[in-house]
Design a protein around this nucleic acid. Structure first.
Length: 589
RNA sequence: GGGGCCGUAGCUCAAUUGGUUAGAGCACCGGACUGUCGAUCCGGAGGUUACGGGUUCGAGCCCCGCCGGCCUCGCCA
């Protein structure tokens, strides 16, 4: 062993002992006669001191130490004198008086130091990710992620779940995200697909009798990245047999309570709230609402349809929506210029414009206030529950666009106005998602969740006649505006499965060709089953209080899906391509 | 594929809005200093203003292109 103690554990009670520490030089202070080294490892920082009576050769080494050099130090643990303690360090009551010093490895001058307060840009952090990972806040996030995974395994183990691994090299199936493909050398011209999720395998495990399965599974989706999306990510994947929707929900309720308890020491009241998809779309304009604050969307149809403002009136006449939100106390906080920025913001979501009203004691102040009678203005204020000093925003558009625009505006305003405690976690279920969504481009119905999802029993009759109204037995767990888990009751009746495929324009022959192995499995005594998958990365984000998924992944990809540390992806040797019978045909720009 | 923001010393930023020789803090190098803890003090070195064009008497600043980074719409069952 190179060390007897870590840099985070020495305390006043260790005074008098001799300890050997190893770590990185976090900072050095050379006072000629006395040299201080702040030594860092992942457990903390301990001050090492070399005094005037230190042998000369060791003083020379100590003086030459620079940031991120790796050293081993042996010395006596001393209490720091009165007034010399450092309250910023948990080890600040003591220091180690260096008696032996070994430079284990010299560091190049780092492009940035782990202790820096001014974070360099992400490009540099990712390129030197090993230096970035030395930063205590990053280490805390990585440690928290470990604890999250550990607590998850403990919980499922305690409830008789089996952790079962499923293949990474699988088969490409239609629907869903773009696959990452892996060419087969043995089968020329054929490809494996990396799993978008272990969906099919876990259903087959249910058929196979492993009635409580979970896995912390890596998933891959070749789609564009976001602050909360990586092309490879980790799911806490769960499936249970002989259960209904409620059983899954209460199982995950229990998991969440366990995690809150283990990771934050908080009690989570159960059951978690269950909101319908219809309800959250109406109130929050989003299927993953941030429930830490109110600011609900209010329907203004009654006022809009008879008001003097043609834009509102026509929107209602065309069967569309006029809805508004109230930003409390924001009337004087947003200048005209800032409101123009908000208008640009909602245009991203397809809105044509953004109506706004400053609420005054005497009525509404707005460029369009003149189109509203005094009576209509009072009705508007009353309907929205607005008060003097508030700022009202309205969007008149289709249900879809007004939801998207106002839902996004609601989140932005709440953040800017600090309407919630960023540390709080507000968790709820959203249930009864629509079974299908009409795809304009493909001119067909596509599954909102996935094609193996069981419709509500009472909606099965209208499957073919009114598919847009069919509700699925599917559910998402939402937290602070993120989709943090998603699942459904699965179809175990091959006849119902066939009808769903046919609704989506997938012919029986094609279904057999693509999903035949699953359909066949379902014919051999498939138990009723249901499942869910939680986003481990996103939960790690929320527990760490960050809004960037890269903060909780040791080696993340950048926005263009590259790994700036290793340079992946990269071209390969011609020989590798020949072995795989692959010809690359990249158009010249 | 579209929209937005950004790119100046190793790093974080500034440069009186188009005007002389592009500055500061940290880091680095040299020196001073026996109790610091963002050590301090003195000195030094360090720049193709991402890159390529253009406008102009004059461009870090304006215009076009391009590369890179981030955010976002589409996309993500």
């Amino acid at each position: 062993m190179y060390r007897t103690k870590t840099c985070g554990e020495l305390r006043i009670e260790h005074v008098g002992q001799v300890a050997t520490l190893c770590g990185w030089v976090d900072s050095y202070r050379d006072h000629k006669g006395v040299v201080f080294i702040d030594l860092r490892d992942r457990y903390g920082i301990t001050q090492v001191v070399f005094q005037a009576d230190t042998p000369t050769d060791m003083q020379t080494i100590a003086r030459g130490l620079r940031s991120e050099d790796v050293i081993q130090v042996t010395g006596e643990v001393l209490a720091r004198g009165a007034g010399l303690e450092n309250p910023k360090l948990v080890t600040g009551q003591i220091e180690v008086r260096g008696r032996e010093l070994t430079l284990l490895n010299k560091s190049k001058t780092p492009p940035f130091e782990p202790r820096t307060q001014d974070l360099p840009n992400e490009e540099l952090r990712m390129q030197y990710r090993y230096l970035d990972l030395r930063r205590p806040v990053v280490q805390q996030a990585i440690i928290l992620r470990h604890k999250l995974a550990k607590a998850t395994r403990d919980y499922f183990d305690r409830h008789s779940f089996l952790e079962i691994e499923t293949p990474i090299l699988g088969r490409s199936t239609p629907e869903g995200a773009r696959d990452y493909l892996v060419p087969s050398r043995v089968h020329e011209g054929s490809f494996y697909a990396l799993p978008q999720s272990p969906q099919l395998y876990k259903q087959i495990l249910m058929v196979a009798g492993y009635d409580r399965y979970f896995q912390i599974a890596r998933c891959f989706r070749d789609e564009d990245l976001r602050a909360d999306r990586q092309p490879e990510f980790t799911q806490i994947d769960v499936e249970m047999a002989f259960v209904k929707q409620d059983d899954i929900l209460s199982t995950i309720d229990g998991l969440m309570a366990h995690l809150l308890k283990e990771l934050r020491g908080e009690e989570l009241p159960l059951p978690l709230p269950r909101l319908t998809h219809r309800e959250v779309m109406e109130k929050y304009g989003s299927d993953k609402p941030d429930l830490r604050f109110g600011m609900e969307l209010i329907c203004l149809m009654e006022i809009a349809e008879n008001c003097g403002f043609t834009v509102f009136k026509n929107t209602i006449a065309n069967g569309n929506r006029v809805r508004g939100i109230v930003a409390p106390g924001a009337a004087e906080k947003y200048s005209r210029k800032q409101i123009d920025e908000l208008t640009e913001f909602v245009k991203q979501y397809g809105a044509q414009g953004l109506a706004f009203f400053r609420v005054k004691e005497e009525g509404l102040d707005s460029p369009i206030a003149k189109f509203f009678s005094a009576e209509d203005q009072q009705k508007l204020i009353a309907k929205l529950g607005a008060r003097a000093g508030d700022l009202i925003f309205c969007v008149a558009d289709t249900a879809k666009v007004s939801s998207a625009a106002l839902g996004a505006l609601r989140n932005r305003l709440a953040k800017e106005l600090a309407l919630y405690d960023p540390k709080e976690m507000k968790i709820a279920w959203v249930v009864d998602f629509p079974m299908f969504q009409w795809d304009e481009d493909e001119q067909r119905w596509v599954a909102e969740h996935h094609p193996f999802c069981q419709p509500h029993e009472e909606d099965i009759d209208i499957l073919e006649t009114d598919p847009g109204k069919v509700r699925a037995q599917s559910y998402d767990l939402v937290c602070n505006g993120y989709e943090a888990a998603s699942g459904s009751v699965r179809i175990h009746d091959p006849a119902v499965q066939q009808r769903i495929f046919s609704m989506m324009g997938i012919q029986p022959e094609e279904a057999e060709l693509r999903f035949g192995f699953l359909l066949e499995a379902l014919r051999y005594g498939a138990p009723p089953h249901a499942g869910v998958a939680l986003g481990l990365d996103r939960w790690s984000m929320m527990f760490s209080g960050t809004d960037n998924i890269r903060d909780v992944i040791a080696f993340p990809k950048n926005q263009k899906a590259s790994d700036l540390l290793t340079g992946a992806p990269a071209p390969v040797d011609a020989k590798q391509l020949r072995d795989l019978r692959i010809k690359v045909d990249v158009p010249v720009k």
